[in-house]
Design a protein around this nucleic acid. Structure first.
Lengths: 190, 190
DNA sequence: GTCTATAAATGGATAGAC
DNA sequence: GTCTATCCATTTATAGAC
């Protein structure tokens, strides 16, 4: 992808994670990039195209992460920890997860964007489910019920905790994620 | 509070939970209420005042809920279930939690609004912490670590799951909340 | 690819009549 | 308390020169 195009896309991502998709403007991008609004329209004629392009980019990234974790030699506990650690950088940069951002803006995005969003969600959930299933098989992770439901719970809490951590501080996130891991360790309950 | 004022406030709440604070307009309110924009400005001259008023209203509601739960004769498991059930209605009405909505809009609200938001978060967390502490004392709820951290986890997952459920369906929420309760039941781990 | 210029619509807000 | 009228800034978007 062209240099400028990718530059715009990454900046749009930053703004989606801070101001939100509906709340950032081409003028915001213009000021940060030092080029005129019309120049940005040259690369992404409509804002919906820019939003869709970012969602597709994030979908790719989500799939790449899944693949990377599948091929990694880390054990399930390490994989889980690596996944949860992704939230730390996000909080330090005062950004929320782009998925959460678009979820909160669900009524303001079109059908096509919504479809990609849903595909991202599905990929996230299946990635985490795989890790939990592996951990359960190897008796490194313990939980009641189905791996899928436990994955839903962990992913929801991770994203939710990132939102709370913007106000409550990074420590809130760290403690909450430690609590998740603690819940999954030790021998299973009677 | 005056009838019309309260009517506007409740509609603003609906829009905060669907479109988001930054994305709804006085025109949106005007169309739904059948009165002109200027009339809405009469009740809430500035949008920031309307947003702040809603946050203060929600803060009151959060405190009322805490008080109601404290005084209730329900056992801790029932209280927890009642708390988690609040998400069901929200999802059925295609709304997210107003707290999540403002959290996603944190960069778009002023200092005064942010302060009330933080107070709401603190109240939510302490309400849930109390329930867990009671359940731990009475040996009806089991978890490792501190009640506060477990409360952070549950609240984060509840709010996160509401966001996912907008796309994944109500069943996603139900299963995820059941998983939370399952994690807290049975005897403690060795 | 970037610019100037501009259009058309929308959003927040106010003045003043009824 | 609601209305009409209006203001000014912003936002998305396009046309056409360089």
């Amino acid at each position: 992808m062209r240099e400028r195009q990718s530059e715009i896309l990454m900046l749009a991502g930053e703004m989606i994670q801070t101001k939100g998709y509906d709340s950032f403007s081409y003028n915001d991008l213009s000021l940060r990039l030092g080029i005129r609004k019309a120049s940005i329209h040259h690369h992404f004629p409509k804002k919906q195209e820019l939003g869709l392009a970012y969602l597709k980019y994030w979908y790719e990234a989500t799939q790449d992460l899944a693949k990377q974790l599948r091929q990694s030699r880390m054990n399930p506990v390490e994989k889980l920890q690596a996944y949860l650690d992704l939230g730390v950088k996000s909080i330090e940069e005062k950004r929320i997860c782009p998925v959460s951002s678009f979820q909160a803006d669900r009524w303001n995005i079109n059908e096509e964007m919504n479809e990609v969003l849903t595909k991202i969600e599905t990929t996230e959930l299946s990635t985490l489910t795989s890790i939990l299933e592996d951990g359960q098989s190897s008796e490194e992770l313990f939980f009641v019920g189905e791996a899928k439901d436990q994955a839903n719970l962990i992913l929801s809490s991770m994203k939710g905790a990132i939102l709370y951590a913007q106000g409550q501080g990074l420590d809130f996130y760290q403690r909450t994620m430690n609590q998740i891991v603690a819940n999954l360790q030790g021998s299973p309950r009677s």
